[in-house]
Design a protein around this nucleic acid. Structure first.
Length: 198
DNA sequence: GCGACGATTATCT
DNA sequence: GATAATCGTCGCA
């Protein structure tokens, strides 16, 4: 069952990030269903978090969708090559988001394999924020601001994992965020092989 | 208008 | 382990 819109409106982005672990991210880009279990996420807060693109109230064309009401997709281009997928959370005018960093493939393996131009299926298929976006066909030009209640990108509900199944660490690639780089806001499923980095 | 750089990854050594 | 790839955004003039 598709996650209800209320889920995305919760005020604590860290709790939402943890709750998203184990749920299923689905897309029907090009008419083909591709999906995977969310195994790794990171939380970004619009307030008091220098690692967030919308930090310090920065409001531009790029960050605008993060200020929208939760339940939308924030997709952006990184290093000019990688499309990174985020889930916008919290109420209107509060710029919180959860970056999905890795998934465990479920549906549409062949399509994902083709999009990734992989001969074999291994963890490089969907473990990593740029990799999973490519596998699911997510592109910033096409999916920036997409409604997660729609039928092109959505998240299927699943039971919330227990604390003992979740590993917590600092976020990846945010050294520029000074003291906020130390925030323990990265979460992944313990003993799961579909993780970008240990 | 211009220049520096990034929430990364594939492909080298 | 190091590095190239590659382009939209942001900050400043």
């Amino acid at each position: 069952m598709k996650l209800k819109s209320d889920f995305y409106l919760q005020s604590n982005v860290v709790l939402i990030a943890k709750a998203l672990l184990g749920k299923t991210l689905c897309t029907t880009v090009d008419g083909v269903l591709t999906s995977g279990k969310i195994t790794e996420v990171e939380a970004y807060s619009g307030t008091n978090d220098k690692a967030c693109h919308a930090n310090n109230g920065l409001r531009t064309k790029r960050t605008e969708v993060m200020y929208a009401q939760g339940g939308k997709a924030y997709v952006y281009l990184c290093y000019g090559i990688h499309h990174l997928f985020n889930v916008v959370t919290n109420v209107h005018d509060t710029a919180d988001a959860v970056l999905v960093r890795a998934i465990e493939p479920i549906d549409g393996l062949e399509t994902m394999q083709k999009r990734r131009r992989k001969i074999e299926i291994n963890k490089t298929l969907t473990a990593g924020p740029g990799a999973l976006s490519q596998a699911l066909g997510i592109q910033y030009q096409q999916h920036y601001g997409a409604d997660l209640q729609g039928d092109e990108i959505w998240i299927e509900d699943a039971p919330v994992l227990t604390e003992s199944e979740i590993v917590t660490s600092t976020r990846i690639g945010v050294a520029y965020a000074e003291e906020d780089a130390l925030k323990p806001w990265r979460f992944y499923i313990k003993d799961n092989k579909w993780i970008s980095k240990k």
